[in-house]
């Protein structure tokens, strides 16, 4: 019994030390410049959306219906994101824009191309083929599952 108590006390002391150290780390850690990051995210994200809006207006003026135009716009933006990743520009935008470059669908394309391109040397099956879905995989999995659940709930409520 005494030994067990000793162990607990030791553990408690270790926890205290760790907590104390964690606070010390927090105090010396350089802070994110949150305001600047947010401004850049706003500008970069907003600009990407404006480019999307220009494409959307163009496709609608070419006589496409609203839903088709939206789909073609998404495809075009994916193309741009993938292309800019290929020529090594998108990671530079990402450094500046942060979430502003991750959240638009161009960022989704970036997260598909970047790992696939880098793992090409590991082969076309488990390199490119598998790595295309490093980030896209989870996105599709959770997107499809939730939308399917919503559909079922909607069906049951009808």
């Amino acid at each position: 019994m005494v030994a067990v108590k000793g162990n607990n006390e030791q553990q408690q002391e270790q926890e205290n030390q760790r907590e104390e150290y964690r606070l010390l780390v927090e105090s010396v850690k350089p802070k994110h410049n949150i305001l600047k990051n947010c401004v850049m995210a706003f500008l970069v994200g907003g600009t990407i959306c404006v480019i999307g809006q220009l494409f959307l207006d163009f496709f609608i003026s070419q006589g496409l219906g609203e839903r088709e135009a939206a789909a073609v716009t998404a495809g075009t933006m994916v193309f741009l994101g993938a292309f800019l990743t290929g020529i090594g520009v998108y990671d530079q935008i990402g450094k500046i824009g942060g979430a502003g470059s991750i959240i638009p669908i161009t960022g989704f394309a970036n997260s598909i191309v970047a790992p696939a391109m880098e793992y090409k040397r590991e082969g076309f099956l488990f390199g490119v083929g598998a790595k295309l879905f490093t980030v896209a995989g989870p996105v599709l999995v959770y997107g499809i599952i939730t939308s399917c659940l919503i559909g079922i709930i909607y069906y049951l409520l009808q």
Binding site: I34, N37, C38, A41, F42, L43, V44, G45, G46, I48, C49, V50, G52, G97, G98, A99, G100, I102, I103, P104
Partner: peptide, 10 residues
């Protein structure tokens, strides 16, 4: 679009 991205940055 910008605001949606700011939420993500935060």
């Amino acid at each position: 679009g910008g605001l949606i991205c700011v939420i993500g940055q935060l």
